[in-house]
Amino acid sequence: MKRIGGFFGDSFYRFGSIVLFVLAWQTLCSTGLAPGTFVASPAVIAETLAKWAVNGFLARHGLISLSRALYGFLLAVAVGVPLGFLLGGWFKAAGRILDPLLKFLGQFNPFALFSVFMLIFGLGETSKVAMIFWVSLWPILHNASLGVRTVDPLFVKLARSLGLSRPRILWRIVVPSSAPYLFSGLRQASGTAFFMLIPAEMLGAARGLGWLIINAQINYQIPQLYAGTAIIVAIGLAIDALFRFLEGQVVRWREKAAV
């Protein structure tokens, strides 16, 4: 059972709660009930964001964070999907043998490993990308191998007896049948990738949204802190909505095809 909706759901009612919340927040700040030393009002946040948008600050830090998340994620897709297919489909025995090892490696905490990555890759971009790769890899790998295991072997046998070549079997049968699992893995991984990037940037980076947050925290710049938070939440929601949408397309297509 999937949750319906997502960010761009249908009901006006749902957005009403957000408007109410923002209004209440603004009122609390304007009346001084919420002290400005701890809480920035929505108006101040909007003002800060507008300033950042104009002077290019937002684009600079946002793009660097997004590109880190994207590179790590794409790398995880490039490794995880083929590996999952191989282990779940073609080399089932190897998959069974490697399964405990992969579970074991998946338990290695990315933040603890961050220290190791910094030793190997240095302080540059690579260590951050490696960390995002590491957290994205496991859901993608797991779901790819799960998906390929649910492919109906009858279809594969049929295709083989009809003389389809291996790449065509892969592209026409295995990939479409396992697509719902693949996309569920991609959605999980994309959410985690961006979520984990922020603390990674807080621990060791000189640019990016995580750095922006830690910088605002250290210098006690409340408006900047809240504006950065708002941007990060918005990007997280957008990524989630995008992958939910893609997943919905794939699942709906599959249901139609299954009839």
Binding site: G5, G6, F7, F195, I198, T229
Partner: peptide
């Protein structure tokens, strides 16, 4: 319906922020 969207927004709020 009332709380689904705020919860989704809050769930994106990274505790480190």
């Amino acid at each position: 319906e009332l709380l689904d969207l705020p919860m989704e927004i809050l769930s994106q709020l990274n505790p480190f922020l």
